[in-house]
């Protein structure tokens, strides 16, 4: 054991030892891949050969000639926006009822089930449930005399379906984040508001929502980032179909890379998507923070 003077902050080499795996990982699996990705986006590369430098050609092709790329960007927006706009209020609403109910352990287990399930199983389970003719939903609708939609074969409905399944998958997790925030609100504040003569609605708007604002910002932005980059569900559930109607950009670049072996163009596509996500998240964050400051 070394003897030395007491040092209030440092611990000699110890902190560096503790963070050494972090640093090594950050270099090998964060910095180098990002650099490599940028390099690749300036090349044409079928990985069974060697990369050839093509400058900005891949970006030019994607942005000016590739209709499928733009369609995929549009689909990405629809998916992410649908996921946030429907999913976040829904989980907030569920959190309100959940946080005031009995038997929380049971509800929590049930609502958390999808989060425990692998995405392949989720995709296939819903394929069975949503089958046009023999899925349980359309069978049930048929019994009541209604014609159920073509959930997965109609292009518009297919997008609706993947958004709904994504919400189903994530609702439980966000509900728990919101309910944690709700429970952290001091009950004395409610008492005070009630004494003050504030009605339920006013209490909600003026006390509860501002108090859970950090949770709201957190959930909205993480959901948005997740929605823009998530493609495992779509890959397994619709494969991007029918006719490309659910092909989001992340899926498009993935298949470009690992099916058509166009690594350069795929890297360029992924970088474009990343820049879009980065800019939009920043704007969103600013907007949400800004409102908070005004209040």
């Amino acid at each position: 054991m070394r003897s030395r003077d007491f040092d209030p902050g440092g611990g000699g080499a110890a902190p560096w030892v503790f963070v050494s795996p972090l640093i090594a990982f950050a270099l090998i699996f964060f910095v180098v891949p990002l650099g490599f990705s940028v390099y690749l986006s300036f090349t044409r590369w079928n990985p069974l050969g060697t990369p050839s430098w093509v400058g900005l050609k891949q970006f030019e092709y994607l942005l000016t000639r590739d209709d499928a790329f733009w369609r995929s960007v549009g689909n990405t927006f629809v998916f992410a926006f649908g996921f946030v706009a429907l999913g976040v209020p829904l989980s907030l609403g569920l959190a309100f009822v959940f946080s005031r109910s009995r038997g929380k352990a049971v509800w929590r287990s049930i609502y958390y089930l999808p989060q425990l399930t692998n995405i392949v199983a989720i995709a296939y389970l819903w394929q069975f449930v949503l089958d046009d003719r023999y899925g349980i939903i359309n069978r049930a609708l048929g019994l009541t005399g209604l014609r159920g939609p073509d959930w997965l074969t109609d292009p518009v409905m297919a997008m609706v379906s993947v958004v709904l399944v994504m919400i189903w998958y994530d609702a439980g997790k966000n509900m728990l984040v919101f309910s944690a925030a709700l429970e952290a609100v001091d009950s004395e504040i409610y008492d005070a508001a009630t004494l003050d003569g504030a009605g339920a609605w006013r209490t909600l708007r003026s006390v509860t929502l501002p108090m859970i604002r950090p949770a709201f910002i957190f959930v909205t932005i993480t959901s948005f980032i997740t929605g823009m980059g998530f493609f495992a569900l779509i890959l397994a559930m619709t494969g991007g179909g029918p006719r490309g109607a659910t092909e989001v950009t992340a899926l498009y670049t993935y298949t470009m890379a690992f099916e058509d072996l166009r690594m350069g163009r795929a890297s360029a596509g992924a970088l474009i998507l990343f820049v879009i996500i980065g800019v939009l998240s920043l704007l969103q964050f600013r907007a949400l923070r800004e409102r908070e400051r005004r209040t």
């Binding site: 180098v32 690749l40 980059g229 890379a257």
Partner: peptide, 21 residues
């Protein structure tokens, strides 16, 4: 700052380069 910032980078960005690393 790296730890906080890196969380913002979606995983799809890393699939191709890490595969080849």
């Amino acid at each position: 700052r790296l730890v906080v910032g890196a969380q913002m980078f979606p995983f799809f960005l890393f699939i191709i380069p890490i595969f080849f690393i």
